[in-house]
Amino acid sequence: MNLQSMRESSELLTRLSNTELEFFESVSRETHLANGQILFEEGGPADSFFIVSKGKIGLEMTSPGMAAMVIQTLGPGDLVGVSCFFPPHRWNWRARAMEDTDLIVFDAVEVRRMCDVNRDLALEVLGVVAEEVVRRLHGTRIQLLDLYRST
């Protein structure tokens, strides 16, 4: 898997040094999901993370008695699966392809293991993940304001 070509579109890959990128390449592969296919289910083991290269992934909240509700969509360059970086390493949401979607899959177990021995890499990775989480928190706060109702 050659990640070099995706470097510009992904914040995580942009930050990595060439050596780190080589390691990420060694624990990654490409995958394809057809429209509607499930990437992961809520509660399942979060042992991978993903970067969308083409298409769209919807994060869904599911509950008995109601249709699945898409709470956020993620597109090309976006990181999917931040739960894999934090205990208890379980998915918080269901993720489903909302159209035919190509992704890079990374082995999170291997990345976590490498982060345990390489603290510089750990800081780099967690820095990017923290920024992503802050961006999503910020977006959620704006959505909670329900701004468009009163305009």
């Binding site: 509700m69 709470i71 969509t73 959505q143």
Partner: peptide
């Protein structure tokens, strides 16, 4: 994009930024 989706919506969900 929309802030809240429903089952008819296959587009983006999230803030406009």
């Amino acid at each position: 994009t929309v802030d809240r989706s429903d089952e008819t919506w296959h587009g983006d969900v999230g803030v406009v930024t």
